[in-house]
Nucleic acid binder design. Structure first.
Length: 274
DNA sequence: CTCTCCACCTGAGTGC
DNA sequence: TGCACTCAGGTGGAGA
């Protein structure tokens, strides 16, 4: 379920708890969560290793260890990664546990098991888990020319283009709706009908809303990051997502909801035009 | 190649 | 209380 802001928050909060820590042992499950390795393989690769860095690419976390091995984690809809003291009561669907040298544990929990974990040895050039991703929302290369080139001839809706990870990486269903509201664009608009001005508004709304999401989420998800909550979101910063029937914060018109590209989509029929 | 559908999973919420 | 049903923040493969 997490979009880029939640993953970035995990990186900022869990990263410092993990860096410099050495893995004492691993308890891994054999249940499809591991994408390219086995429980024994993962354990063998990480036991004795010290975590050296935690990066993020789109919605994926990339953990690097002291030998240059990489662990890539993609969270799907319900993945959770957190550090807790050893012996903390374990919740259901805890699939991977990394016991650390300071008496804490790094746990991966994922009820729906849509998430995946990859492990690559140092030097392996396989980029599974992050291949094909487009630029980051805060990349200076994100301008109207880039968007025009990547989506300008598509007949699909702008909503679907925002969800396409090969265009801009990290935008999910919630923040695509919020970005489109900010930009004043109807989610049903075919990409090829977007005006230069609309593309320009997207170029500004994408990094602005994602940065806002990172900041607002960073202060609201403490329980989630401690494994105490499944609620990723404080809904209050959201202007249209999940608010069908409520008044548009800008003009008061009732927010509408429909399925676009197979995903639940909310927008203001007055403020967001084609 | 594009587009729609659907499978992958479990849990929470709703209505009867 | 229980049961049936719908929906959920992601991804990728099948088939039209």
């Amino acid at each position: 379920m997490p979009e880029l802001p939640e993953i970035e928050t995990v990186r900022r909060v869990v990263g410092p708890q993990l860096l410099g820590r050495t893995v004492v042992s691993v308890r891994a499950a054999d249940n499809k969560v591991l994408a390219n390795t086995t429980p024994d393989g993962l354990s063998g690769m990480l036991t004795g290793r010290r975590f050296a860095s935690m990066g993020r690419r789109g919605k994926a976390l990339v953990l690097t260890d002291d030998l240059g091995g990489r662990t890539v984690i993609r969270f799907g809809m319900t993945g959770q990664l957190y550090v807790c003291p050893r012996g903390t009561e374990e919740e259901r669907h805890t699939h991977e546990v990394f016991f650390l040298d300071d008496g804490t544990e790094l746990r991966y929990v994922d009820p729906r098991r849509f998430g995946r974990i990859w492990h690559f040895r140092s030097g392996e050039t396989d980029t599974s888990g992050i291949e094909g991703l487009g630029i980051e929302p805060d990349d200076p290369a994100l301008d109207s020319g880039y968007l025009e080139a990547r989506i300008g001839r598509r007949g699909t809706t702008v909503k679907e283009a925002l969800l396409d990870q090969s265009v801009v990486a990290g935008i999910g269903n919630i923040w695509s709706d919020e970005i489109l509201f900010e930009a004043g664009i109807c989610p049903l608009t075919p990409c090829r009908e977007l005006t230069g001005e609309q593309l320009e508004r997207l170029v500004h709304a994408i990094p602005e809303k994602i940065a806002f999401a990172v900041e607002s989420n960073a202060v609201s998800s403490g329980d989630y990051l401690a494994g105490k909550s499944r609620k990723y979101y404080d809904m209050s910063p959201l202007k249209v997502y999940g608010r069908s029937g409520e008044a548009c914060p800008r003009c008061g018109t009732a927010i509408v909801r429909n399925t676009v590209g197979g995903r639940s989509t909310c927008w203001c029929p007055m403020c967001q035009t084609r």
